[in-house]
Nucleic acid binder design. Structure first.
Lengths: 242, 242
DNA sequence: TCAAAAGTGTTCCGAATACACCCATGC
DNA sequence: GCATGGGTGTATTCGGAACACTTTTGA
């Protein structure tokens, strides 16, 4: 259903079509975790403006796609992976934020298991590379602002929802989980207390499997139980790590 | 700085300007609180499409405004108030969500002290009216989806940040605050414990003033201390109500 | 045997819970 | 006096913090 344009005048009688001149883009903050470091995948721009600058992977959106589709496409082209955990977090709309025209961008943060994939090169990026979130290069456009907000959002989210698991392999030890949270939040947990707290939540399923090839007592492996979380949440449970 | 368009070809060599055909709008969910009820201000549409339907107040965005400006304008035209507490919460981008073209809308929720203002009529609305958030009419466009997400966001936010005060008059009693939270969250608090918890946070400043004209012992009035909250937050304090 | 990390148990403290109870005001 | 909500005190419980300790593996 497309209605007649005459219906669509603004309060000041501006013709409807005058409003349809925005560009939309998505920018993705892809987080990973390796060797105790939280990392983000950046690309080196292969074209002006900001050629050779590091930037967030992103793209202009075409009229046939939702923002979620567009962000999924960016992540797929970047990693070869589908169904990456991904969540919208903010719209950036400064009038002069993009040098070529009025582009509003929607930020998505996404979480992957670093080991699972190799970032691939693409037409819009000459290179892609993981950066420790505490050692970031200068970025193109307003991407520093976007990335800062993404990091803040991740730190807040990770305390209130069990999404940290998306950064770990499907099977993990409790100490690996603890180290991840320590890297994300920037402080230490007491090992026995962290264990007790996480296990008391009943979100982790112990597996009949242990670490191998470690030069110490091998740790039991666990997996996260998303269905269990769903059930608990409906019963009023709130995931909460301080 | 406007760069030459030749720089801006997509991966498939689509000319840059082909991307600049989106309409942007903002939709505002204005929450209020009165007589123990959480309410939202809706407008009755005065024009097609969805003429005579109840809808969220909103507007198309012009190229010279940020989204925040646009949302502030909507709220100002609606209430006559400036500097209303307001926060972006989601972008809605279903391809067919608007019957006349590709309009992406950004949802803002906002909080006002109901007593402070009278909703005013405007060109795009024949009427505006407060609705209890549990007794909502049928809505235009995808506004039900937007409103539902706004309510969910408010309930979550109100537990983790001291924004509930935005819905109360500047001076309030502890029981008024408790009733507000009970209405927002849908469950009861124990009076002595609620008092102790809130006062122990040191966010409330007791005033040398009490209720008047009440047929019972007049309650002490308090005000919220935003500077104190800022300080505490920087020290690692997390507002938290279960 | 030693290093390293896994894993358990216990004590202590403070916050949340569940109450009972008294206070001040208008009618 | 009595109804109404304001406001305080206390006993109990529960969870988190701190920390000591034992266990299991590889080298």
């Amino acid at each position: 259903m497309r209605l007649d344009e005459k219906f669509y005048l603004s309060e000041n009688n501006v013709p409807f079509k005058e409003f349809f001149n925005f560009g939309m883009s998505v920018d993705c903050i892809l987080f990973g975790y390796k060797n105790g470091e939280v990392r983000v995948l950046l690309i080196e721009r292969g074209a002006d403006p900001f050629k050779h600058f590091w930037a967030l992977p992103g793209d202009l959106v075409t009229a046939d796609l939702t923002l979620e589709d567009a962000a999924s496409n960016v992540l797929y082209r970047l990693t070869g992976l589908e169904n990456i955990f991904m969540e919208q977090f903010h719209a950036f709309s400064e009038v002069q934020r993009h040098p070529v025209g009025r582009v509003i961008t929607i930020g998505y943060y996404a979480l992957v298991r670093s080991e699972n994939h190799k970032p691939v090169a693409s037409a819009w990026a000459t290179e892609s590379k993981w950066f420790n979130i505490n050692k970031l290069p200068e970025l193109a456009f307003d991407h520093k602002e976007i990335l800062d907000l993404a990091i803040g959002t991740l730190k807040r989210k990770v305390r209130n929802e069990p999404i940290g698991f998306e950064l770990l392999p499907p099977k993990f030890t409790l100490l690996e989980l603890q180290k991840l949270y320590e890297a994300l939040l920037g402080y230490k947990f007491d090992k026995p207390n962290f264990r007790k707290k996480l296990l008391s939540m009943n979100l982790l399923v112990p597996l009949d499997e242990v670490q191998s090839n470690v030069s110490h007592r091998p740790a039991k492996l666990f997996k996260f139980d998303p269905d269990r979380y769903k059930t608990l949440k409906e019963e009023g449970f709130h995931f909460d790590l301080q």
